[in-house]
Simulated scan of single mutants.
Amino acid sequence: MSICTLKVSLRSGAYADGPWEAVIEIDSSALLEDLHFAIQSALGFDNDHLYEFFIASTERSRDRVRFDDENGYLYEKTIEILHPLPDKKSLYYLFDYGDDWLFKVAKINRKEQAADPHATYPRVVREAGTKPTQYPDLDEDV
């Protein structure tokens, strides 16, 4: 097993409360669907909404290559197939089309590393910032 190290950085979301990022080690042959579950686990989110990954120049670019449930690429494309990304392009992860949780996913190491035989993958190796809350308790005055 070859391990890929990815930095997942929160860009925006309905209840985002400051910056957050996590460094995740994952098998480079993992599917995008597996990366989705790894990010969900790192966040502590409920997996109850649609999601997609896309490659684009910017997070707002209309010129994007999408990987979603509709085209089935979530279940076919692996992390290693996507890298290296095209020049001046980034990988993004969009979860919940209503609350629009958007994350940038960047590969930190160009070279993959051998798996630690004592570790379980995927795993979060570092985290910084304020972890977002998917469904905060909103006090509403009636």
Rank of each mutant, 00 (worst) to 15 (best):
M1K: 13
M1R: 05
T5E: 00
T5I: 07
L6W: 09
S9R: 06
S9M: 10
S12G: 06
S12C: 04
G13R: 09
Y15C: 04
A16N: 02
G18M: 00
P19R: 09
W20K: 02
W20D: 09
E21D: 09
A22M: 03
V23N: 15
I26A: 01
D27T: 04
L31I: 07
L32I: 14
D34H: 05
H36E: 00
F37I: 01
F37R: 02
I39L: 01
S41V: 14
S41I: 14
F45K: 13
F45S: 09
N47R: 08
N47H: 10
N47P: 08
D48Y: 13
L50F: 02
L50D: 02
E52I: 02
F54N: 11
I55R: 06
S57C: 01
S57F: 04
T58H: 04
S61Q: 06
S61W: 14
R62M: 01
D63L: 01
R64L: 13
R64D: 05
R64A: 06
R66S: 08
D68L: 04
D68P: 07
D68C: 14
D69M: 04
E70V: 12
Y75S: 08
K77C: 14
I79L: 13
I79M: 06
L82T: 10
L82N: 10
P84V: 11
L85G: 15
P86I: 07
D87L: 09
K88N: 07
K89F: 01
S90A: 12
L91N: 03
L91M: 05
Y92V: 10
Y93G: 09
Y93M: 00
F95M: 03
D96L: 01
Y97T: 10
G98T: 11
D99V: 01
D99F: 13
D99P: 03
D100C: 08
D100Q: 01
W101E: 06
L102K: 12
L102M: 14
L102Q: 00
L102W: 03
F103P: 07
A106H: 00
I108Y: 01
N109W: 13
K111V: 10
K111N: 05
A114L: 09
D116F: 02
D116Y: 02
H118W: 07
H118N: 08
Y121L: 06
R123C: 06
R123W: 11
V124P: 14
E127R: 09
E127M: 08
T130L: 01
K131C: 10
K131D: 05
K131H: 05
P132N: 04
T133H: 00
Q134I: 03
Q134K: 04
Y135R: 07
Y135N: 11
D137N: 11
D137F: 15
D137L: 12
D139Y: 09
D141E: 10
V142G: 13
V142L: 10
